[in-house]
């Protein structure tokens, strides 16, 4: 064994003095893939649907039914695009680690932190837009003494979201790397199948937790 499994993003180049990592490049490629995929999926509503459009519609309906379990019907309708894009992006990011030469962008803590902070800011914005100044009353809801605890809760949410996604995906990669060092031939295949399932579950949990946070912000 010459070298253990590497963890974290690797710097592979530099543009204008800014270091470029491999996760950065795969992040851009995956964003492009998601964009192209969504354009390919989209269609104008009409009477006769092709097979592809039927499949897409079924999947979207399933996802919408799941999101409606957390949010009221009208709110879920309005923010379905956000949660759908989030889910699709995280799912493809998690699974992209299986393509040789790619590194999962979600195994870089900067990406997951960006996703989590963006999600939480979006939730705050939506809650403020829906409820106006009333929303800030929820920070001092039982009494003014609870203000620090409520603010702390808002801060720990993105931290736990980011660390959960990063830790799961990165931990899977480390386990896979160690198994590959020990037995490189057939043995990693079941572990890879398990990782594929876990990547799906993690994308699901990220999306449903943000939906639940939005529901909590709107309810208070």
């Amino acid at each position: 064994m010459e070298k253990g499994p590497e963890i974290g993003p690797r710097i592979i180049g530099e543009i204008f003095g800014i270091p470029i990592t491999d996760t950065f490049i795969s992040l851009q490629i995956i964003s492009l893939i998601v964009l192209v995929l969504l354009f390919w999926f989209s269609y104008k509503p009409r009477e006769e649907l092709t097979t592809k459009e039927n499949i897409v519609e079924t999947l979207v309906e399933m996802f919408k039914r799941y999101i409606t379990g957390f949010l009221p019907e009208d709110v879920a309708d309005r923010h379905l695009a956000f949660f759908g894009t989030l889910f699709l992006f995280i799912l493809i990011s998690n699974w992209s680690g299986f393509i040789p030469g790619f590194t999962s962008p979600t195994s870089d803590i900067n990406v997951t932190a960006g996703l989590a902070i963006g999600t939480i800011l979006y939730i705050q914005y939506v809650a403020f837009k829906e409820k106006g100044i009333e929303y800030f009353k929820s920070f001092i809801s039982p009494s003014i003494l609870f203000l620090p605890i409520n603010i702390l809760e808002q801060i720990t949410r993105p931290v736990s979201l980011a660390l959960r996604l990063f830790g799961n995906i990165s931990g899977e990669h480390i386990v896979l790397g160690i198994i590959t060092i020990l037995a490189p031939l057939i043995v990693p295949v079941p572990i890879m199948a398990l990782n594929m399932f876990m990547g799906f579950i993690q994308a699901f949990i990220f999306t449903s937790l943000s939906a639940a946070y939005l529901a909590a912000a709107l309810e208070e």
């Binding site: 963890i7 379990g69 660390l163 959960r164 830790g167 449903s208 937790l209």
Partner: peptide, 27 residues
């Protein structure tokens, strides 16, 4: 079953978070 399934997923995710925090410290 549907609601219990959803709640179970949440509970498992929150328990998992503690594990992941420890994993980060170990890493």
């Amino acid at each position: 079953a549907d609601q219990i399934n959803r709640m179970l997923l949440f509970a498992l995710a929150f328990i998992e978070t503690i594990m992941i925090f420890t994993l980060s410290v170990a890493l």
